[in-house]
């Protein structure tokens, strides 16, 4: 649910996804709310994975721990290109707090704060 990581640094990343008609979160040709949230979570995972890759570590499993202040303005249509900005706010132990903004063109489809548990193994 992330096609491309456009850019990534230690603290932020920009990802992209084109909504395919066979995406499991598409309903009536619209990308549904859980789809938007899952795309944000997977963008955050790709971003965390980029960090571990850059440090030469193996990627970890990640789970959503909390979603907060998530606003869904619109449901993108099939074929839309999502561009998502992820910002790492803080990392405490194995929990990362991120802020995300999903855009379709100039329009903001969703904004969200998310806490992700990274599993050590």
């Amino acid at each position: 649910m992330v096609d491309v990581v456009w850019s990534a640094t230690e603290t932020e990343a920009e990802t992209g996804l084109t909504i395919a008609s066979d995406n499991i979160f598409v309903k009536d040709s619209l990308f549904s709310e859980p789809g938007l949230i899952e795309h944000i979570a997977q963008s955050a995972a790709a971003f965390a994975g980029y960090g571990t890759f850059a440090r030469g570590e193996s990627p970890k499993l990640g789970y959503i721990g909390e979603i907060k202040d998530c606003i869904i303005n619109c449901l993108p249509e099939v074929g839309s290109e999502l561009r998502t900005h992820i910002q790492l706010v803080i990392e405490v132990g194995s929990i990362r707090l991120i802020k995300a903004e999903v855009r379709v063109g100039e329009k903001i489809a969703a904004t969200c704060q998310m806490k992700i548990f990274l599993k050590d193994d």
Binding site: G65, E66, V89, I90, V92, G93, I95, L97, K115
Partner: peptide, 13 residues
């Protein structure tokens, strides 16, 4: 708990 502790650290920052 572990989740809200993260909120506290973020808030202090």
């Amino acid at each position: 708990d572990s989740l809200s502790l993260v909120d506290m650290v973020a808030l202090i920052e």
